[in-house]
C-alpha cells in the first residue's frame, strides 16, 4: 500500500530550530495538513506563544501574530471577535497555557470563543532550559525541581483539558500522541475535523499532544 507523502503547502520550507526528535515539528506538520485539507490557508491567523514554539511563525505560511507569554487565547479572542471570517488558532506549550496563561484559556473556553488551541504538553518549560511546570509529574526532575516534582498532589497533565472541558460543553479535547505513527494517524482526520468543527459550530477546541518517547537508540 505504497503512497506518496509530501510537505503540506501551509508548512514553510524553513528549517526548524527544534532539537532533533522534538515532535513540535510533527505537530506543526499535522496542523499544516489540517489547514491544507480545509483549504483555509488564505484566511488563517496563527498565534505563536512564548516558548520553544515562539518561532512557529517561521514555519507556517499563513498570517501569524506572536503573543506575550500566556496571552495567546486573549489575542485570538481579539482577532476572532473583530474578524469572525478569519480562522484563528493558537499553538501553546504547557508553561504558556497551563501556567501563566491559565486564566486566559479558561475564560476563552468559558466564553466559547471560536478558535482552536493546540496545546503541547511536555511537562516542563522547554525554551528556558527545563524548569518545572504545573504539569511536571511528581518525581519528575526539572532544573527547578532537582529532586523531582515536589507537588503534594499529582498534577496529572491530562487532567487540565478535562477540567477545562467541563467549563464549557463545547470544548472538545481529544488527546493525541505525537510519538507514535498510530497516535498521529489517528489524529490527522480528527484534527482537520476539529478545525472544521470550529468553523461550523464555533466550539473552542483544545488539542493536546504528548511529548515524544525519546528514541531508544538504533
Amino acid at each position: 500500500m505504497a503512497k506518496a507523502f509530501s510537505r503540506p503547502k501551509a508548512l514553510s520550507t524553513t528549517h526548524t530550530h527544534y532539537c532533533p526528535g522534538c515532535t513540535h515539528g510533527i505537530v506543526h506538520r499535522l496542523v499544516a495538513e489540517a489547514i491544507d485539507d480545509l483549504g483555509i490557508q488564505e484566511k488563517t491567523v496563527g498565534i505563536a506563544p512564548v516558548g520553544c514554539a515562539v518561532l512557529a511563525y517561521n514555519y507556517f505560511d499563513c498570517d501569524f501574530q506572536e503573543a506575550a507569554h500566556g496571552r495567546a487565547p486573549a489575542m485570538a479572542t481579539g482577532i476572532k471577535r473583530v474578524r469572525p471570517d478569519l480562522m484563528v488558532f493558537t499553538y501553546q506549550g504547557d508553561g504558556d497555557l497551563a501556567s501563566i496563561g491559565m486564566g486566559e484559556i479558561i475564560h476563552a473556553a468559558n466564553r466559547g470563543e471560536k478558535f482552536t488551541t493546540i496545546f503541547i504538553n511536555n511537562a516542563i518549560y522547554g525554551m528556558t532550559g527545563g524548569q518545572m511546570a504545573p504539569t511536571t509529574m511528581p518525581g519528575q526532575r526539572a532544573t527547578t525541581a532537582p529532586l523531582g516534582g515536589t507537588r503534594p498532589r499529582p498534577a496529572c497533565p491530562s487532567a487540565w483539558p478535562t477540567c477545562w472541558a467541563n467549563w464549557s460543553p463545547r470544548i472538545c479535547h481529544p488527546p493525541g500522541r505525537a510519538q507514535t505513527p498510530a497516535g498521529q494517524q489517528g489524529q490527522k482526520k480528527p484534527l482537520s475535523r476539529r478545525f472544521n468543527i470550529k468553523w461550523k459550530t464555533g466550539a473552542s477546541v483544545l488539542w493536546k499532544w504528548f511529548p515524544p518517547v525519546p528514541p531508544t537508540g538504533a
Partner: peptide
C-alpha cells in the same frame, strides 16, 4: 522499503518524502 510512509509521519522535520 515498502513506501509505507511511517518514516515520513515520524519525521519532525519533514525531511523524508515519497513521490510518485
Amino acid at each position: 522499503c515498502i513506501k509505507c510512509g511511517i518514516c515520513c509521519t515520524m519525521c519532525p522535520d519533514v525531511a523524508i518524502t515519497i513521490v510518485e
